[in-house]
Structure formats: C-alpha cells, structure tokens
Design a protein around this nucleic acid. Sequence first.
DNA 1: TAGTGGTCTAGACCACAGC
DNA 2: CTGTGGTCTAGACCACTAG
Lengths: 234, 234
Amino acid sequence: MPSLHQKIRNNIEGRIHSGELKPGDRIPFEHELMAEYGCSRMTVSKALGALSQAGLIDRRRKAGSFVRSPRLEAPLLNIPDIEVEVKARGEPYRFDLLSRSAYEAFRPDEIELAGKGGRILYLSGVHYASGRPLAVEQRLINLTAAPKAERVDFNDRSPGHWLLEAVDWTEAENRVSAESADPETARLLRVPRGHACLVVMRRTWRGEQRITGVRQAFDGHAYFLTERFHSHRG
Amino acid sequence: MPSLHQKIRNNIEGRIHSGELKPGDRIPFEHELMAEYGCSRMTVSKALGALSQAGLIDRRRKAGSFVRSPRLEAPLLNIPDIEVEVKARGEPYRFDLLSRSAYEAFRPDEIELAGKGGRILYLSGVHYASGRPLAVEQRLINLTAAPKAERVDFNDRSPGHWLLEAVDWTEAENRVSAESADPETARLLRVPRGHACLVVMRRTWRGEQRITGVRQAFDGHAYFLTERFHSHRG
DNA sequence: TAGTGGTCTAGACCACAGC
DNA sequence: CTGTGGTCTAGACCACTAG
C-alpha cells in the first residue's frame, strides 16, 4: 500500500509522463492539492519536494511549481539493486529462494569464478514487486571471496542486495541481451513460453578475484534499463 | 545560509566521505540527532530521508540507519555507432535505406522532438554485418536542429554515423528493453516471428533542443550490450 | 515486546518573487 | 503588498523488526 505522499507523487508523475502535463505547465498549488487529497500541507510538500529533487518539476515562490524540460544528469552507473529499485517505486518487494547448494567448482565458468578446487554457492530465486514476478535470478558466489555468504539465510533476502552491502568490489561487467523465455523461466515469470525477456549477466571482481556471477531474466515488457549521460564534448 | 536539515545532511555526508563513517557503520538515531541539533524529529527525518534517497544510507526500523556500500561511476558512456562497431570486428558493413520522408511534426512524440510546426525527417532501414541483417532502425530527425540532413543521401550511409559526425550533442538517453519481433521486424531481420529482440531507444539533445530519436531492434541472439566499469573505492 | 523509522497533522514564521 | 514555497515544531499513531 503506497503512502499518501507516494500516491500524490505517482499521480503527478504519471500525468507528466503521459503528456497530460507538458514542460512549462504549472501543476496545482500546494493548497489545491491539500484540498484534493484532504491532507496537510507537509504531505503535499513532501511529494512535490521529491519530484523537485528528481528533476521533474521546478518550484518557484509566489509563482508555483512547473514541469521541467528534460534535465542533464551526471553519468552514473551502478549495479542495479532490484530490491532498492522496487522499494524506490513505493512497491513492496519480495525475494523467493528456489534452490540453494554449495559445492566444489566443476564447470568451466565455475572454475573461472572460484578457481580449481574452490567452493561455490549456487542460488536461484525470483524477485517480486507488488506480488508479481519481476525477474528470475541464477547466481554463483565465490565462497573464497565471500565466505560469510554460506551462513546467510537468503530465503527472504535478495542475494544481490546482501552482496552489495557485505562485499567490496572493484570492477563489474554487465552484459545485456534478449532471449525467448524457456518453459521454466516462463512459468516462474508467469509469461507465455517464448516471451521476450531482457537478460542481464553480470560479473564482479575485487581486484583479480572474482566475487559473483549472476544471470537475471526480466519480463521484457515490465522492465527496461535506462541510462542518461552527457557528451564529453559538451 | 543553509537550512538546518541541509546542515545535518551535509555534516553526515561529510563524515561518510571523509571515511570517519564507513560502510556498515550505524549513524546516530533520530532522537540522538534531535538532541544534538536541538530540533524536531521531522527535521532530522528530512535530512536522513534525503541521504537515503541519495543511496548513501540504508534505514531499517528498530535497527537504525547505516552507511551503505559505495556506488560506482561510469568511466565513459557513448552512443553506439553500429557502423564503427561492425567494422571494428573486421566485418563488412552495409546500411539499406527502406523509407525516407520529410514532413511536419504531427504525433505527440514528433512534436516533442521538433516542436509544433517543426519539420521532421523520418528514416527507416536495416544494418547489415557480413551481409546478414543485424538491426532494424527507425529514426526521427529534428530538421531544425540538423537542417543539413535533408540534403544527405542515406541510401548507403548509416544515419547514426552521419549524425554523430555532423551534429554536436550534449545529452543522450538510452532505454533498453526486450520485445518479441513483430512480423515486419522478423522479416527484415530474417528471424522467426516472436523472436526475442533487444530494443534500444535513444534520444539525444543539444541543450534544450532535441536532435534525434531512434529505435533499433537487434536480433537478441546476435547482439548484446556490454559495459564494464570500476568502483570508485577500489 | 519494546524501540526504531515511516508517516501524518495543524498549526507557525519567514524569504522571496510577482503584482 | 500579497501569495507562494521553504522550513520548522510538537505532538501523534502505525509498521516493522531485532532481541
């Protein structure tokens, strides 16, 4: 259940993205929104403040709040943390662990991750937003690099979220592709077989040592990656 | 004169960046900060909420607020130039123009690009690598921003390649998603209907002015995007 | 269960920009 | 001068979770 200030924010954000409110348009005054939602001014202010911080609106005393033109953003890339992204949208998040096992590296990709004789933690599970499946994840963790992982209960925690907090990393590589959903993935995502999925494969390092490798398959219609950056020429 | 919640935020942010507070450390509880700054809880909450939204801290009920692991910065992002990428792999490149027309902006997305009454150049075509189709492209060019485009023969030149050389840009936004191939796209890419395609939608700006908007659909099995980057913590 | 953050209220004063 | 947003208060109840 989104909070009231989230509702107000989502409502206005939707009207901007739908084109109902265009750059330059004035959005209702705070006191008008107070009346519309029957709430206090602080609540309205929190919603508009968040929109302002997100760069969607421009607020001017005495004049009002106005829809901004697309703004410049710093080129910032991060390892997407699905848990954080879902919660940032004001939706409840859940991770369901499907399987878990620890064993000695055997396949070539496992040996590349943990070295010969190194131990691997394999995890698979599903990320949910508002109770609907968002992504299926398969992950290998190098237990030499992150030994604590073996004692963590991932039944209700996103492994990626835990790793980002628990283990320092120095390098990461994302590979993004599109694939048709195999029957198992389709079942877990609750989409038809063959449905287009956005697949992100990521590897992370700490120095020369590999930490984790993960494959995340998103419903292609429900998720997209966005990056915004500016020219080095200006 | 910074406001009080700004002071609190700046103070904590400084202690994080200076290393006094490290990832995992707990920052003072709200009631402790209330006493320290002699202010109400709402003020403290606003400061910590901003730090949380900025991704610097993680807040957990009953537990407290904790410094998060650092985010990463992108070393460089660029606009992929398919022509350059294909040739860099040592393969012959070809662009086939399918259709071309110039007209006045009509649809909402066209008006967003060129303004009301602005003129648009629409191009569609296929990128080939070693004679095999790699991507289908549909592109709108704002002729106010790039008037020279109207006199260019794109029958054998990649519009993206020409634009990158002819027109300066300051901002760009990429949106990456996965879609099933519609019949027309499938025919052009020579893949089955419903085949998973990697779709890149890109918009570019020069200051406040839009330059171009393009949608490129790649065979999901033949193409992927890769990015590699470093943590600033090392 | 107790303590934390999450949210919200009904006021208030002030700074600033538009009229 | 007036009306707007910017900030702040001193409460309150609720949700979640660590112990």
